[in-house]
Write a protein that binds this DNA or RNA. Structure first.
Length: 198
DNA sequence: TATGCGATTGCCT
DNA sequence: GGCAATCGCATAG
C-alpha cells in the first residue's frame, strides 16, 4: 500500500524515485531498473495523451497510481503507472527490471529469452514476464495481486533521452529516461528508426 | 473509408 | 546490423 499523493506529482519528478521499487504480480516480482516519464495533454508531444483523452488513453486521465496498458506494433503490450497532478494526464513507462521472485514462472512465459537478465529487459518483455495484459489496464496498484511496493530508500540514477520516440519530443529533446547506473537489466539505448519509404 | 506508422522484439544474414 | 511481424489508432481525403 502506498500513499496515492506520491503519484499526484509530475511524472518527471516521480520517475527517478520509482527506480528500485518492486512491481508484484502474483508469484512474480520485479525490481524496477529503468523508466521513462511522459507528461500530459498539450505539453508533451511524445505522450499518448498529448492530443487529449481518447478511448485508449482514458486511464491516464484517471486516478494516479493505477496501471495504464497499451498495445503497440500489432503484438506488444507496454505498462505505465499513471502519474499526474489532479486534472492532468501523465504516466511513467516501465522499461526494464530485474526479476527477483518467481523466476521459473517468468522464464516459462518468456520462452525466447536466453538469460535471466533478458527476462524483463525491455518494456514489452517486462509485461510478458509479469503476465500483464491489456485486461490489467486500470488496475489500482496500491494493493492486490498486482501491486507496486515503493522502495524504502532512493537509489542513484542517471538520465538521458527517451528511447523510440519520434518527432517533436523525441530524440534528445527531453532527458526523461531514468535508469540505475551499471545495472545489467537496463535495456540498451536505441534511437527511433523511421520506417523506410518505398 | 483509406492509409501510414508506432513508447518493440526476435530472427536472419 | 537489417528487417519482418502484425493491428489499432491517428490523420488525411
Amino acid at each position: 500500500m502506498f500513499d496515492r499523493s506520491f503519484f499526484s506529482r509530475s511524472a518527471v519528478e516521480v520517475a527517478p524515485e520509482l527506480l528500485g521499487a518492486r512491481l508484484v504480480s502474483g508469484e512474480v516480482a520485479l525490481r524496477i531498473t529503468e523508466v521513462e516519464a511522459y507528461l500530459g495533454e498539450g505539453v508533451d508531444p511524445g505522450s499518448h495523451s498529448f492530443r487529449g483523452k481518447t478511448n485508449r488513453n482514458a486511464v491516464m486521465f484517471g486516478e494516479p497510481g493505477h496501471l495504464y496498458t497499451y498495445f503497440t506494433y500489432g503484438m506488444h503490450v507496454c505498462a505505465n503507472v499513471v502519474c499526474s497532478p489532479a486534472g492532468t494526464s501523465g504516466g511513467i513507462l516501465l522499461r526494464a527490471g530485474e526479476i527477483v521472485a518467481g523466476r521459473e514462472i517468468a522464464t516459462a512465459r518468456r520462452r525466447t529469452s536466453r538469460s535471466s537478465v533478458d527476462l524483463a529487459r525491455g518494456p514489452a518483455r517486462l509485461t510478458v514476464a509479469l503476465g500483464i495484459t491489456l485486461a490489467d489496464g486500470g488496475t489500482d496498484l496500491a494493493s492486490g495481486p498486482l501491486r507496486l511496493e515503493l522502495a524504502s530508500e532512493s537509489s542513484d540514477y542517471e538520465s538521458g533521452p527517451r528511447t523510440g520516440v519520434s518527432g517533436p519530443g523525441g530524440g534528445g529533446e527531453y532527458p526523461w529516461r531514468f535508469w540505475i547506473p551499471g545495472d545489467p537489466t537496463v535495456s540498451p539505448y536505441k534511437a527511433h528508426a523511421p520506417k523506410k519509404r518505398v
